[in-house]
């Protein structure tokens, strides 16, 4: 993809983010942070590419280290968000 197409996606996604985040209820701002944390670890994609590629050993090991770090975030982030969200209960009537 050329730069302009990518940039267009980026700008549009910023607008989507702006409106979606303002609609998040303030009561869930902490889970919002932990889940954004988990999803920003989608950089694991880059880490996987680096660790699978041939040609440079140091690049491969950096990639594997990044896979570990991103995985901690992904699993930890989603798990802690799930744990928090399970606590939010309505009044029993």
């Amino acid at each position: 993809m050329d730069f302009i197409s990518i940039f267009s996606i980026f700008v549009l996604a910023c607008f989507v983010g702006y409106f979606v985040v303002w609609s998040v209820t303030p009561a869930l701002h902490t889970p919002l942070m932990s889940v954004t944390n988990a999803i920003s670890s989608v950089i694991i994609v880059g880490a996987l590419i680096a660790s699978a590629a041939a040609g440079s050993a140091s690049s491969k090991w950096l990639g594997l280290a990044a896979v570990v770090m991103a995985s901690i975030n992904i699993f930890g982030g989603f798990a802690v968000t799930e744990r928090m969200l399970a606590m939010y209960k309505k009044k029993e009537r």
Binding site: A47, S56, S58, S59
Partner: peptide, 20 residues
């Protein structure tokens, strides 16, 4: 961790640009 992982990926891309 996100920050450090980003640094590691960028460094890996710098060292092996062909793969990316």
């Amino acid at each position: 961790l996100v920050g450090l992982a980003a640094v590691a990926v960028a460094a890996a891309a710098y060292l092996n640009p062909g793969a990316f």
